[in-house]
Nucleic acid binder design. Structure first.
Lengths: 335, 335
DNA sequence: CTGAAAGCGCTAACAT
DNA sequence: ATGTTAGCGCTTTCAG
């Protein structure tokens, strides 16, 4: 840096100012510095910057699993968005382990990262409620009453309502729900939306049609639920799954039992992952607005890192339903 | 660190030695230092370590896309394996862009990372052959004659041979191949394995059954290929797809045209991603040994970083075929 | 708006 | 096997 300063005929401080994009450097000086940087092939040593400034330029994105297309998708967007803001993103798969999620919130990676985005899986609403959070953090996922940090939430309830209303409008009345849990969080919200829609239509809620699935991660959860539903003998003409992964498991079982989708049973998922376009049949699914979620989460975090104070902000992402063949949508042209 | 040294009654150097796990510290001293560290809640400042030692403790894993379950899966394993070795892994989606892949090989991230693992998509075999590589790098993917760096390769050819031999053994003789390209690389190898198997069985190779698909990333590539195949009128009783993603697209089209799998057409994929277990029907697929690939790649890279010299090493991962219903395997018990 | 000097916290080299 | 010292390359004071 000293060499660059000499070449540009300025002090090191000015070089530093230019490279850090600090304001208050004359345009002409800036240009001269940049020329010298280029000429000498100089590059900032990030380790030294970090040591001196205390800022790492790194943010962590903690998510349950990367092999889930939904999270892969969000992760890719978060990485891109982070880069736009000048941050490197480190992905931290928590394996849905409580201890790892806690570590993120308690600043376990302090000194290593400037902040973190957490998509909790093990931590339920009750755990999160009013919890103490160390350092800049943005939460993804379920809505909380007393959020301990900024969050970007899906409108789980509203989105579910939309999905179920769509099935009702198609004349289905025996609609099963796959993915209920006792954990609170998204599952409860999605169940609430399901109940809202039925109630609004004057359709009674039949407990026999509520199928638990503690592990949303696996298609096998959906498959297992479908088997239980079929074996219970309860009549049904539609299945609303709390995510796409489980919906694929359900589709698989229905096909293996000789049931036609959507003729005999309509199926709707949640996430609108890319593969929903190519399942057999293509899956109707709620798009929870991943693009917006990633963008907003990084924005909120970066503003926190850069000094924003005040109460946690909550941003609700926009959602919409993508109707495909599994719920009677038009046969999509393949290709 | 000075405080810890005082508390433990040793010099800072000793504290540093203990924390860096350098050899040559008496066990008793070590214990005393660790106690002091705990008591004071002391944590190494990684920025300072990096500045002084020049090592970052970070490795980059550059891959085309994270939303592809195959890469999400490998990425997760690489992250875990890196952690085991004390390294943080930074994922760098290249978007299959030539410039980004080149940047990895030419040490674009020097000073930021100690080394990189690259899974090339845009760079073909010819580009890679004998290319100059800057810094420790491990390549994933296709086998090269004159590798510029260590690599972990699949036995593309052998694995394809196994897959096609399986179809032949099941009595199929009109076997289409989906995913050929003119790029060289994995596509060529897989095509060669396909030809090997046919030739060995005395079955002629019909060019009408070779279906190009430049973009392996998308199920739509497989779907488009299947449409072309059907519209060509060429008879066929099996499809070997060069990856699972394309196979799902093919399954989708076959179903929409009323063809039964495996009765009318057997289908085999390549990657054995998790969703192959839950497609309709479950997909027979070649498992290319992702676990071993991730483990080996990190091992090779870390050993390079830690000073290994000499000619590039090449490790061929083990593969095996997982037979499921799409090629006439037994109906898998659902759940 | 720019310059000079100090020092972030650690580890490498050398000494003991 | 452990201690001493210097300095990695930058940014932050504080002056001008």
């Amino acid at each position: 840096m000293a060499d660059v300063a000499v070449a540009a005929g300025v002090s090191v401080k000015t070089v530093s100012n230019v490279l850090a994009e600090h304001p208050g450097v004359r345009e002409e000086t800036r240009a001269r510095v940049l020329t010298a940087v280029d000429a000498l092939g100089y590059r900032l040593n990030p380790a030294a910057s970090r040591l001196r400034s205390g800022r790492t330029g790194v943010i962590a994105f903690a998510l349950p699993h990367l092999y889930q297309p939904y999270f892969g998708d969000v992760a890719e967007r978060v990485i891109a968005e982070g880069e736009r803001h000048g941050y490197t993103v480190v992905i931290e798969p928590t394996d849905a382990l409580l201890a790892r999620e806690r570590a993120v919130l308690s600043g376990g990676r302090a000194q290593q990262v400037d902040g973190a985005i957490l998509s909790p899986a093990a931590l339920g609403v009750i755990d999160l409620q009013g919890l103490h959070v160390e350092g800049p953090v943005v939460l993804l996922g379920a809505r909380l009453d007393d959020p301990p940090a900024d969050q970007v939430v899906m409108d789980d309830r509203g989105a579910s309502r939309t999905a179920v209303a769509h099935l009702l409008a198609a004349g289905r009345t025996r609609i099963a729900a796959v993915g209920t849990t006792q954990d609170g969080g998204s599952a409860d919200e999605r169940e609430a939306g399901y109940r809202d829609a039925l109630t609004a239509a004057g359709v009674p809620v039949d407990p026999a049609l509520l199928l638990d699935a503690p592990d949303w991660d696996r298609r096998s959860s959906g498959a297992a639920a479908a088997v239980r539903l079929l074996d219970s003998g309860a009549p049904f003409d539609a299945v609303f799954c709390f995510n796409d992964a489980m919906a694929f498991g359900v589709l698989r079982v229905l096909a293996s039992r000789g049931l036609r989708v959507p003729e005999d049973v309509a199926v709707v998922g949640f996430d609108n992952t890319e593969q929903s376009r190519f399942s057999t049949p293509p899956l109707t699914s709620v798009d929870p607005g991943q693009e917006q979620i990633a963008r907003t989460a990084v924005d909120l975090l970066v503003r926190r890192i850069e000094g924003r104070t005040g109460a946690p902000e909550v941003v609700v992402a926009d959602h919409h339903l993508v109707v495909r063949e599994s719920s009677g949508g038009p046969r999509t042209p393949v290709v």
